[in-house]
Amino acid sequence: MVRRFRGEFHQKVDGKGRVSIPAGFRRVLENGDPAWSEGKSPEFVIVYGDHRRQYLECYTLEAAAEVDAQIAELPRGSIERRMLERLFNGQSLPSSVDETGRIVLPAKLRTKIGLDDTAYFIATGDTFQIWKPETFDEVEAARTEAWLDQQPEDFDPLTLLDKTRGG
């Protein structure tokens, strides 16, 4: 059964960079880790990316393997493959959830996204993102509002799904 990340949460970050993963997110991480079993810590991948990325994107092991497979289909030695390998594999960090449901975000990653004492978690389907709350509001929430403002007053975003079926 494929499980999706759902919801948004504000979580406290302590001085050592420890932050609790929302319980529902932990279930998805467990489901997306083929080696996970009761009593074990689920593993996942944090992609921090290049200087333009203002958030951390967290992939289940299965979702990361899907991206890896797509990258491997590109011609070996091509600039596209090399760049994707660098941005996805090189600028990422394997991680795991500890027995208390927390992860440790290294200082390098906290500094990169300007994270202080609160992290904003938002689901994005088969991944979730971790943002500094103020940055999310300034960048992504503003982008979403601007896009919605361009739509008709009675716009229903689910109508976009009709286009995926050729409708």
Rank of each mutant, 00 (worst) to 15 (best):
R4I: 10
R4Y: 14
F5I: 03
R6V: 14
E8L: 01
H10A: 07
V13T: 00
V13N: 02
G15T: 03
G15P: 00
K16Y: 00
K16T: 00
G17S: 05
G17T: 03
V19L: 03
V19A: 02
I21V: 14
I21K: 02
R26F: 01
R27G: 04
R27D: 13
V28G: 05
L29V: 06
E30D: 08
G32S: 04
D33V: 03
D33M: 03
P34V: 07
G39L: 06
K40A: 11
K40V: 09
P42K: 04
F44I: 08
V45C: 04
I46F: 06
Y48V: 02
H51W: 11
R52W: 10
R53D: 06
R53K: 12
Q54L: 12
Y55N: 13
Y55V: 07
L61N: 13
L61A: 12
A64S: 12
A65T: 09
A65V: 08
E66F: 13
V67F: 09
D68I: 06
A69H: 11
A69G: 10
Q70N: 08
I71K: 00
A72P: 10
E73T: 14
E73K: 15
E73V: 08
E73Y: 07
R76P: 07
R76G: 13
G77A: 15
S78E: 05
S78K: 09
I79V: 14
R81H: 09
M83D: 13
L84I: 02
R86Q: 08
N89T: 11
S92R: 01
S95V: 07
S95E: 11
S95K: 11
S96M: 12
S96K: 15
E99H: 06
G101L: 00
R102K: 07
I103D: 05
K108F: 12
T111G: 14
T111W: 10
G114V: 02
L115F: 04
L115Q: 08
D116R: 15
D116L: 14
D117M: 09
Y120R: 04
I122C: 06
A123C: 00
A123R: 01
G125V: 04
G125M: 06
D126C: 05
Q129G: 02
I130C: 11
K132N: 15
P133T: 02
D137K: 14
E138A: 15
V139C: 02
E140F: 07
E140V: 12
E140Q: 12
A141N: 09
A142V: 01
R143S: 10
T144Y: 11
E145R: 15
E145T: 12
E145A: 13
L148W: 05
Q150L: 08
P152A: 00
P152L: 01
D154T: 09
P157K: 04
T159L: 08
D162G: 15
D162N: 10
R165A: 10
G166W: 02
G166K: 02
